[in-house]
């Protein structure tokens, strides 16, 4: 399909790779790919770090642990549409957080990222991190609980401080949890559609377009099936990049299970 000149209706005029050339030249596609890269990197890094910190802190035998856990995880149960709308309201420049800052006296404060083309993608990152870091926390916490307490004790006997133990000894032991969380989040990044529809609808202008949304728009609203198919294929290629990251993980998993089998 991506090799034909299809527009509103599919046809079979073979045009080779021309749709792909059009796609690469399409400014909107370029914006959406750059956005995806930016969003993906920031979102993955931020949620993994925040999720890990939360899990590590909760693991320190704090009070009200289960309460905190449910608080951190509840956003994950909600629809992207719901959280997108909620954050759009919070970030609304006239009535949202900006107004709050003005009211408490910070009249010079600006928090209008939602309507600034160069900043809007960061609001999507913020929203997505809010949604997903609870999940990372749950996965990491399961990993942390699986680690032998003796390791902590041994490190303490050796005079290693708690946070050094955490970063240099325990975190490497959680490779599996990190990989799981990474794979889950990475696939959700490529699929991301609802969130950008609800929060910004690609705007202002095309500043927060994402490939998944690009495909849908061209497929249904703009009647350009050939280009959409090319975009979908391109998105899959990007996914293949993710898959290349996944492959070592699978390798590592099988190796681990084989080792477990030998032990």
């Amino acid at each position: 399909m991506s090799l034909t000149a299809s527009r509103m209706l599919p046809n079979n005029n073979f045009v080779g790779l021309r749709q792909y050339a059009t796609l690469i030249d399409n400014g909107r596609w370029q914006v959406s790919v750059v956005n995806l890269a930016l969003f993906g990197v920031l979102f993955l890094a931020a949620s993994l770090v925040l999720g890990f910190i939360l899990a590590a802190l909760i693991d320190q035998r704090v009070r009200a642990e289960s309460l905190l856990r449910s608080v951190f995880l509840y956003p994950f149960s909600m629809s992207f549409i719901v959280i997108g709308l909620a954050w759009r309201w919070l970030l609304d420049p006239t009535l949202g957080i900006e107004k709050l800052l003005h009211d408490i006296g910070l009249t010079g404060a600006h928090f209008d990222w939602l309507i600034r083309p160069d900043r809007v993608i960061f609001t999507l990152v913020l929203t997505a991190v809010w949604h997903a870091s609870g999940l990372v926390m749950a996965i990491m916490l399961a990993g942390l609980r699986g680690i032998d307490r003796e390791i902590w004790n041994a490190a303490r006997v050796d005079g290693i401080s708690t946070w050094r133990t955490l970063v240099f000894i325990v975190a490497p032991m959680l490779r599996g949890s990190f990989a799981t969380a990474f794979v889950l989040l990475a696939t959700s990044v490529v699929r991301l559609y609802d969130l950008s529809v609800a929060t910004t609808n690609g705007g202002p202008g095309i500043a927060s377009e994402l490939p998944a949304k690009f495909v849908m728009d061209y497929l249904f609203d703009r009647g350009n099936i050939g280009l959409a198919a090319a975009a979908a294929a391109a998105a899959t290629t990007m996914l293949a990049t993710v898959a290349m990251v996944v492959a070592p993980w699978f390798y590592w998993q099988t190796r681990r299970s084989r080792q477990a089998g030998m032990a």
């Binding site: 399909m1 794979v183 699929r191 998944a212 849908m216 497929l219 979908a232 294929a233 998105a235 899959t236």
Partner: peptide, 10 residues
């Protein structure tokens, strides 16, 4: 399971 839905929709 890992593919984006957009690929299958059309």
């Amino acid at each position: 399971a890992f593919m984006p839905y957009q690929v299958f929709i059309y």
